[in-house]
Write a protein that binds this DNA or RNA. Structure first.
Lengths: 314, 314
DNA sequence: GATGCTTACGATACCCGTAAAGATA
DNA sequence: TATCTTTACGGGTATCGTAAGCATC
């Protein structure tokens, strides 16, 4: 047994049991991959993969357990390097964040600016991705933290920490009749064409749920991946926008007005997620603390109870 | 980085930073051990060991963290083999128990007999050892379970499960005057020379504590490692014995009488201990269930609450 | 002087990669 | 037929062990 064999097992699974792809991912030859798998299976005395003829199709029952252990071992082997770099230079390294457009564009910039100021030697990489991809990214790549809304809690290998709650806001072009309406209701909003997020993004599910619950049919005229696009089309007069409150800034969004709609939409919670068992460099904990001062290292390490997330105020 | 290097790190620590011994333990050469350590340190960019000149003296701060991770990885590599053997032949393998004389001689025989009947293909090895060595044995060797009284709870890498409570019993030779005394008191016992366990064994600490609390000086005339020896000398009339109640059997100990001393001594709890993170073969869980039917697999896996230990009745 | 670590060097075994053959879709 | 896996084989490299040199106690 050696670590290369374990890497091969992991990559073979990640690449849908295609040895050719696994070999490419590891910059080695198919033949070697094939042989290593057979060698390991022979050494353990158990078939790890289900085969039909020569093709690999999936994991056997023992293979599933083997895969879980292999994963832990490889995470630990990366942890060894992390421990070492931490002691070699605790203020140098890489912080890899996977996050959504909304977070990257509106919630994180001040945090990241502060972080950069405090840790100039740390290289920052931001992987922008869809919320539903976050668990996979966190498990399969070297990302330290994932930040998104709502869809992070599923995977058992992932620990999530709520750090920010916010509501949706209704934005209209300056001069729009709704500006003068006090206490805007859902039915009122439903009278206008709505521009909002694509399905599965930035709390879109909750928007739909609210209209559903109120029994009114929203006229979703247009959807987009991010608030910038939505705001642009709202400005052009194509409809009224429903975006995350954090995506509206009265100073820069001079052509738009955010209506006051307290309690109209449900609260959304954005969370920070980490992979369990992965050693985090000290500056990763500092970064998380910058996101929310309540998420101290002891909290993230699971040594003390979790606090309530911060509330965002317009 | 490779697994052999990790094994070398582990053995070097276990053998007091003596590379020669570590090499012998791994059936390899000192030179290789030396080089592997340097290679790994260079690869990680951190010194793992504290050195004075050429001698290794201990672990550096990063070395301590490295050691912990290395340990997990090697445990997992053994777990891989265990998973495999479990699927290859779930009713064959080895059950390794570390335990004390008292447990091995009196508490375990019926359990082991039942186990042997149910799993004839499993090889049993019993490592008899002193209670204070149990944690080290459990951490450093391939023992599946350790069974002893009281001293198991310390190490953070070990999970313990109480499975049996018992008290000490006073045994006297047949015909001894104390046989006729009802309600024997500590002060009465203290009038006779006492034969009991060596320090640190089989609840000896609690015996001393009871006399201490009662303010009477016990005349410990003789101590021994096990109840068999104690009983032998009690039979010879050298004193009265204080032994674990489970070590007295009215059927076979025909020359001795156990006095009825309810509540005289404090309750002792014997526990079963396992190393956290080690995969246990299914028959190990069956064995633990045989020790106490309340210690089911879900309890031992930590998936449900712990029950109270069984009470031993004479 | 005894023990223990490092360096040097040669033999071995292992691992990798190319290429060809065989299997699968 | 195109894709994918296995087998065969040769070259290179890493690992191991012996032996000598050197430091520490």
């Amino acid at each position: 047994m050696n670590l290369q064999q374990l890497r091969i097992i992991r990559e073979t699974i990640r690449h849908g049991f295609n040895l050719t792809e696994a070999a490419n991912a590891l910059f080695t030859s198919q033949s070697g991959v094939s042989k290593h798998i057979r060698d390991l299976e022979e050494e353990l005395g158990v078939e790890i993969f289900v085969r039909r003829g020569k093709r690999l199709l999936g994991l056997t029952d023992p293979g599933k357990e083997v895969a879980a252990i292999v994963d832990r071992m490889l995470v630990d082997s990366e942890n060894l390097r992390r421990v070492a770099s931490e002691y070699a230079r605790s203020d140098a390294g890489t912080l890899a964040i996977a996050t959504t457009h909304t977070q990257a564009r509106y919630a994180l910039p001040p945090v990241i600016a502060k972080f950069k100021g405090r840790f100039p030697g740390v290289r920052l990489t931001i992987h922008q991705a869809s919320p539903k991809d976050m668990p996979r990214i966190l498990m399969d790549s070297n990302v330290d933290v994932a930040i998104a809304t709502d869809t992070l809690e599923q995977h058992p290998g992932i620990a999530t920490f709520p750090y920010l709650t916010w509501e949706h806001a209704v934005v209209v072009p300056k001069g729009h009749p709704l500006e003068k309406v006090e206490d805007v209701k859902l039915t009122t909003i439903a009278d206008y064409p709505i521009i909002t997020y694509d399905e599965g993004l930035t709390g879109r599910t909750r928007i739909d749920a609210v209209f559903e619950a109120a029994g009114c049919n929203a006229d979703i005229a247009m959807t987009a991946l991010d608030a910038d696009v939505i705001k642009e089309y709202v400005t052009l007069g194509l409809g009224i926008g429903i975006i995350a409150s954090i995506a509206y800034d009265p100073k820069s969004d001079t052509k738009l007005t955010a209506l006051s709609t307290p309690g109209l939409f449900r609260t959304n919670t954005s969370s920070i997620a980490i992979r369990k068992g992965r050693m985090l460099r000290s500056y990763v904990y500092r970064f998380i603390e910058l996101c929310s001062s309540q998420l101290t290292e002891t909290v993230v390490r699971g040594e003390s109870e979790r606090p309530e997330p911060d509330e965002y105020e317009i």
